[in-house]
Design a protein around this nucleic acid. Sequence first.
DNA 1: TTGTAGGCGTTATCAA
DNA 2: TTGATAACGCCTACAA
Lengths: 343, 343
Amino acid sequence: MAGRDAQRANSRTATLEDVARLAGVSIATASKALNGRAHVSATTRTLVQEAAERLSYSPNALAQGLRAVRTGIVGLLTSDLEGRLSIPILMGAEDAFGAGRTSVLLCDARGDSIREAHHLQTLLSRRVDGLIVLGARPDARPSIGRDLPVPVVYAYAPSADPNDLSLVSDNIAGGRLAIRHLTEIGRRSIAHITGDPTYGAAQDRAEGALAELAEQGLELVGGRVYFGSWSEAWGRSATRMLLSRAQEIDAVFAGSDQIARGVIDTLHEAGLDVPGDVAVVGFDNWEIFATSARPPLSSIDMNLKTLGRVAAERLSAALDGDIGAGVESLPCRLVPRESTTSS
Amino acid sequence: MAGRDAQRANSRTATLEDVARLAGVSIATASKALNGRAHVSATTRTLVQEAAERLSYSPNALAQGLRAVRTGIVGLLTSDLEGRLSIPILMGAEDAFGAGRTSVLLCDARGDSIREAHHLQTLLSRRVDGLIVLGARPDARPSIGRDLPVPVVYAYAPSADPNDLSLVSDNIAGGRLAIRHLTEIGRRSIAHITGDPTYGAAQDRAEGALAELAEQGLELVGGRVYFGSWSEAWGRSATRMLLSRAQEIDAVFAGSDQIARGVIDTLHEAGLDVPGDVAVVGFDNWEIFATSARPPLSSIDMNLKTLGRVAAERLSAALDGDIGAGVESLPCRLVPRESTTSS
DNA sequence: TTGTAGGCGTTATCAA
DNA sequence: TTGATAACGCCTACAA
C-alpha cells in the first residue's frame, strides 16, 4: 500500500525549512523563490526549486490558510441522495474556481436538518471561504441561517429568505422552450403531462408552457395540465387517459424524462409512432434516460454544470464584496434528439 | 445574503483569545475548558463556555490541523461522471468516520490522468489524512503512485498494483447469488445476457453464474453467455435472439438493470409475462431503474455504501499502522422485487 | 539580493 | 487550578 515507506521512515513530509536548508538559503528566500516573487537571483531560484523537487516538497495549505485571508476551500452542502445534481454542480464549481485554486468539501445532509446544522458547523470550523447549498428538490427551503461569517449561495432549491442569494433554473422559460420547439416542428395539438403539483418546478414549467401556447393562439389538448407524480407509471396512465378521449394529439410535453418514457411506452402500445404520429419532449435531460429511450428523447436541460459555475462566480464576487440577494434564474436549453425529429 | 453583517463589521470570527479575554482567563485555560480536559474548575469551565457561546466561537480547524498529527480530512478522488457511485461511497465514508470527525474533499478527475495528478497534488497539499480513489468502471486502473505520504484505498475499480489496497464488489458471488435466487424460485432454464465482455465485472458475473449453474447440474439456455453492451438496446436484441431460437426459457439473469429493462420490454412484446413466464433479475440495483421497471425489478446490489464505509475503516486502520494490500472483495446482496416473485 | 523576526490560532508542556 | 510559552509551517514587512 502506498505510504508504507513514508510511514516507516521518520521522514515527515518536507517543510519549507527543509528545502531552505538543502538549498543553503533562508526560509524567506526559499519562500520567495518558490512563489515566483521578485528580488531573488535566478541561480538562487533554480537552486531552491531543485531542492524542493528533490524533497518532493508540497506546501502545507493549512499553514497557508492560517495566515491568508482565504483558505481556498468551499463547502458544498447537499441533500441530493442520488448524486445526479451534486456532481455536475461540483464540476461547474471546479471549473469556475480554476482547478487547483479551490477545493470543494462535500457534505451530504441527507435531508436531515440536524445533520445539516452539524455539517455547517464543521464547514465553518474548517474556515471555508463560502458555501453552496444544494437542495434535493427545486422548491424553496429554509435558510441555513443569517449572519453567517461566509457568503452562501443556494443552488437548485432557492432559500425561503429573500435576503439570501439563490440560483435556480428558469423552469418557466424551460416550459416555453419545450412548447416552442414542438410548434416549430409543426405540432399544434400538444398535451402536457407532468409531476407532483406541489413542486414549484411543475407549476412553473406548466405556466411557461401555457404562456407560450397562448402566444401562439393554441390551447392544451385535454384542456388542462395533467399533474400527477414524477414516475413512469404516471406517464403511462396519463397517456392512456388522453388517448381514451380520442382527441387528436400530435405532441406531448412531459415534465420529466421518466414521465416521458412512460408516455412513449404507452404511445407505442397504442400503435402510435414517435415522433411520426406524436412527438415527445422531456425535461431534465438525464442522459441515461434520455438516450436509452426508444427513440432517444429530446429533453430540456437545466444546465446544472452552468449552475455550479455561476454559483462559484457569485461566491467569488461576494468574497470581493459584491454581495447579491434574491433569486436568479438561469436559462435552460433544449437538447434535440429523435423523439422530436421534424417529419 | 448571509455574511453581509459579518463582513461589514470588522468582527473577524472570534478566536480562542477573544473567548479567553471575555471570560477573564488565559488562553491555555480557555482551551482546556472547551476541550473538556481535566484540571479546570467547574465555575471557570462554565464561564468559558458561556463566553464561547456569546461570541459564537468556532475553533479554527486549520490551526488545529497544523499542530495535530491528523487533519480530519480525507480526499475522495473520483472519475464518476454520474455521481451514482460517488454519493453512496461518500455517505458510507461519512458514516464510518463519524460525522464531524472527518470531512471529505471531493475531486472529480473526469477520467483525465492529468487532472487526476493535479487534484492529487492539491489534496496532498491540503494534508489529507488519506485518500479514496474511486474508478468509474470496475476494472483495474493504474496506481495513483507509490510512496505517497498518506494511505490510499481504491474502491470499486481496483489498482493494477498489487501492493495497493483495493476494495471491490464480489461480482463472482453476485453472479452466483442471482442464479441461486432464480433456481430457488423454481427456474431451471436460465439465460444470461450481459454487457461489454472487456469489463472484468461482466466476466466475473458470468463466471459466478456458470459456477452456480454447474453445481446445480444446469446449463445456460442458449449454450453461452450473451455478451454485448451495457444498454437497453442490447437487452432487447439479445432477448429477441434468444426467443427466436424457440428454446424453452423461464428466467433471465441480466448483467445490469438497464439490460434487464430491455429484456423485460422484449419479453412483453413477445406476449410473455414477467415473472409468470420468465423471471428476470438485474444487477446494480440502481433504484431509479429497478423500481420504475414493469414489474419492479429484482436486482443484485453491490452495497456501495458499505464499500465506502469499509474504505474508510481501512483508511483508519492504515493510519493506525495496520496497512493492508491486495484486492478485497465485498459481498453483494439480492434485493427481491416482483420480477422474480415465485409463482 | 538575502536574512531576521513576528504572527496566523491551537494545543501541550511545564512552571507557578 | 491557572498561566506563560513553545511549537506547528508559512508568508511578509523590514532590516541588513
